[in-house]
């Protein structure tokens, strides 16, 4: 029970001595990556993690899982817009559903654009975003709009301009400002 018992844990350089105990349980390991994989802390803040716990192992936590959520009745009955007896939650006609889409915020439009490829709603959100002066970059597959505070400088050949733009990053789900060389044939 004395200090000698700790020698195999302390003298790690000597494999014969150190192998007396399995160090992974006794000494353990640096927990930083395990905590990071759990989301502790997230954005420097302490947040609950168990309600979105994917799996006890990082290796089997390949995807997000849907947490508990509750949709209040008031969200389910907004006539003419989202979902009600008369207007079910579907967007099937470019003509008929354009005015519904005009009521959504930019982020909602981006969500619908990226979430439902090859559908009427992708087309509808494309049209609405364009109305709001967003342009879709064909190569980057991202949306951008002019930074209102800066006037871009057009190139001599008139094929591009360099300026400051606000991009919407769908991975980080946020708008961010970038200086960028914009080729006109790259956007639509």
């Amino acid at each position: 029970f004395g200090l000698k018992a700790l020698v195999p844990l302390v003298r790690q350089g000597d494999p014969e001595v150190a192998s007396k105990y399995d160090h992974s349980m006794a000494l353990g390991a640096d927990l930083s990556s395990m905590l990071h994989s759990l989301g502790i802390p997230r954005d420097s803040k302490r947040q609950a993690v168990l309600a979105t716990f994917q799996s006890p192992w990082a290796e089997t936590s390949r995807s997000e899982v849907e947490p508990t959520f509750y949709i209040p009745a008031s969200f389910l009955g907004i006539d003419e817009v989202l979902q009600s007896e008369s207007t079910p939650p579907c967007f099937d006609s470019v003509q008929r559903d354009q005015q519904r889409v005009a009521l959504f915020q930019d982020e909602t439009l981006f969500y619908l654009f990226y979430k439902h490829p090859g559908t009427v709603i992708q087309e509808l959100t494309y049209l609405e975003l364009r109305k709001r002066n967003w342009r879709y970059h064909k190569t980057l597959k991202a949306w951008l709009t002019k930074d209102p505070t800066m006037e871009p400088v057009v190139s001599p050949d008139g094929l591009s301009e360099r300026g400051s733009y606000v991009f919407f990053d769908p991975q980080r789900w946020e708008k961010c400002q970038r200086d960028f060389l914009l080729f006109y044939n790259a956007i639509m």
């Binding site: 192998s19 992974s24 349980m25 927990l31 395990m34 993690v49 168990l50 716990f53």
Partner: peptide
């Protein structure tokens, strides 16, 4: 099933999962 000097791979994985769960509880509750 934890021996002094070794554990099977399966037990080692169970241990890691246990540790992760207890860390989650320590954070939330």
């Amino acid at each position: 099933y934890t021996k002094k000097d070794s554990v099977t791979d399966a037990v080692s994985v169970i241990y890691k999962g246990t540790l992760r769960i207890i860390l989650g509880i320590s954070n939330d509750f």
